[in-house]
Structures are given as structure tokens and as C-alpha cells.
């Protein structure tokens, strides 16, 4: 993890000052000012009532933690949810020094990538072999999900330039597509005979993916894509 990443977490976690006691009411008020907290609570509620209580519980836990973090930041006078926005990319000390040191430090990422790819291949193959909705696959997915959310909490792994100008003003196009896709899926879900019973006439994405995820290779490929997406996001 980079210095920028540590700074992002340290901004909020190790600032000087007395420990601040936060009441549930303060946490709720601060949290509700942030739309994402409300969205997460809504997703958690929808998951719970559609037969996925574990999903709902875990998402609600994250929403409460974010609300608590917002309350703590506002009570201490920090800019809420500040990240390492302005933190420059850390210099790579391995790029200077003796040639042997340079070679050794350039090999380290290669070894890390090789180890990561091997671990990902083992994870997808083993976990893909378990039946869907079984306890082994549930434990494996929940553990990885919690790990990645914990990594996200610490901060970005590297600093990148922000969107500005015209590209920033047109980011709404992506939001529009996301809302359109989510709305279409929700429409299909609400046209099912029951929230937990699929409809042939109005299939959700989950229902359409069932034939693919019925086989070991299908689950392995899906998990590989999920891991790749997760790594791509976590490395931002």
C-alpha cells in the first residue's frame, strides 16, 4: 500500500485531538446527509426482503460504519470523507541506486503479480466447484468481499488526476445508463410472480445467468471476471 493510501486513512483515523464520543443520533444525522448511506440502507433492506438476509445485514453494517465515520469527521471538524485527493503519487525509491537494487525492486511487482494470479486461479477454481448458495461458497465470497471493503476503507492505492472540465460535466451520461439498467432490472423484478420466484416473461439478469452458473466452468469464469473487476476497482 502506498503512502498516499495511508494518508487517506490517516486523515481521519489518527488526527490529533481527544477521542470523541458519538451518539447514535449524531451518527444517524451525519450519515443521512450522505446519499450513499441511504442508498446502501435501501439496498440492504431490498436484499433482506427478497430473501437475502445476509446481503442485507452486511450492507447495512457498512452503511452504519460510514455514517459513524461521517459523524466522527464532522464532530472533529475534518472535511468529511476526505481522501488522498491531492496527494501526489509517491516516488519509487527503487528507481535510483545500484543496478542490482533496481533489478531486485523491479522483480518484486512481477513476483507479486504472479502470486496474485496464482491465488486468483486457485480461488476461482476451488470456489467455482462449490454449489451456489452453499455455506462454503458463502464464506469464501463474504471473506473476500470484507477484505476488499477493508482495503477500500484505507484509501486509494495510487493517486490519479481528477475529472475536470467537459468530461466531468458529461459524467451524467454514465449515471443515466446505470439508472436505465437498474430501472429495467427493477421493472423485471417487480413483474415476477413473487420476489423470490423468477418470471420467464420478464427475466432478471440473475435469472438469465442461472444456466451459465449451473456448471463448474461457468462459475469459475464468472468468479474470475468478478475478481478482475474487484482488483481493477480496488487498485484505483
Amino acid at each position: 500500500m502506498t503512502e498516499a493510501a495511508h494518508e487517506a486513512g490517516d486523515d481521519q483515523l489518527t488526527a490529533p485531538g481527544r477521542p470523541v464520543a458519538i451518539t447514535p443520533g449524531q451518527a444517524a444525522l451525519s450519515g443521512l446527509r450522505h446519499p450513499l448511506v441511504g442508498i446502501l440502507l435501501l439496498i440492504g433492506l431490498c436484499s433482506a426482503i427478497s430473501g437475502k438476509p445476509l446481503d442485507g445485514f452486511l450492507i447495512a453494517v457498512v452503511a452504519v460504519l460510514l455514517a459513524w465515520d461521517a459523524a466522527r469527521a464532522s464532530l472533529r471538524g475534518w472535511p468529511a470523507y476526505s481522501g488522498a485527493d491531492a496527494a501526489p503519487a509517491p516516488a519509487r525509491p527503487g528507481d535510483t541506486g545500484s543496478p542490482l537494487r533496481v533489478v531486485a525492486r523491479r522483480r518484486a511487482p512481477l513476483l507479486a503479480v504472479t502470486a496474485g494470479v496464482t491465488a486468483a486461479a486457485a480461488y476461482t477454481t476451488i470456489v467455482g466447484g462449490f454449489s451456489r448458495y452453499s455455506w462454503p461458497v458463502t464464506i469464501a465470497v463474504v471473506a473476500l468481499g470484507c477484505l476488499m471493503v477493508a482495503i477500500a476503507w484505507q484509501g486509494p492505492l495510487r493517486s490519479r488526476p481528477p475529472l475536470t472540465g467537459r468530461p466531468l460535466r458529461r459524467a451524467w451520461l454514465w449515471a443515466l445508463l446505470l439508472v436505465a439498467g437498474g430501472g429495467w432490472e427493477l421493472s423485471s423484478l417487480l413483474q415476477q410472480p413473487h420476489l423470490t420466484t423468477d418470471s420467464y416473461a420478464h427475466p432478471t439478469i440473475s435469472a438469465l445467468s442461472d444456466p451459465v452458473l449451473a456448471s463448474h466452468p461457468g462459475r469459475t469464469i464468472f468468479l474470475a471476471g468478478w475478481l478482475l473487476l474487484g482488483w481493477s476497482l480496488a487498485s484505483r
Binding site: L36, S47, V62, Y81, S82, G83, V149, S206, L233
Partner: peptide, 28 residues
């Protein structure tokens, strides 16, 4: 995504959405 994930809320929110995908398709 990079822009959204510049804040803690954004980073955590996006990774929660990603984790939810795995939970939704595989977990109990």
C-alpha cells in the same frame, strides 16, 4: 470510477457494490 472513488464514501460504496454482486450470485 476513479473520480467517484476519490472519497472514502465513494471507494467503500463502489467496493460494496462489487461485493454485493458476488453475494447476490453465490451467497446464501
Amino acid at each position: 470510477f476513479t473520480h467517484v472513488m476519490r472519497t472514502r464514501t465513494g471507494r467503500v460504496g463502489v467496493l460494496v457494490a462489487w461485493a454485493w454482486l458476488g453475494l447476490h450470485f453465490f451467497a446464501k
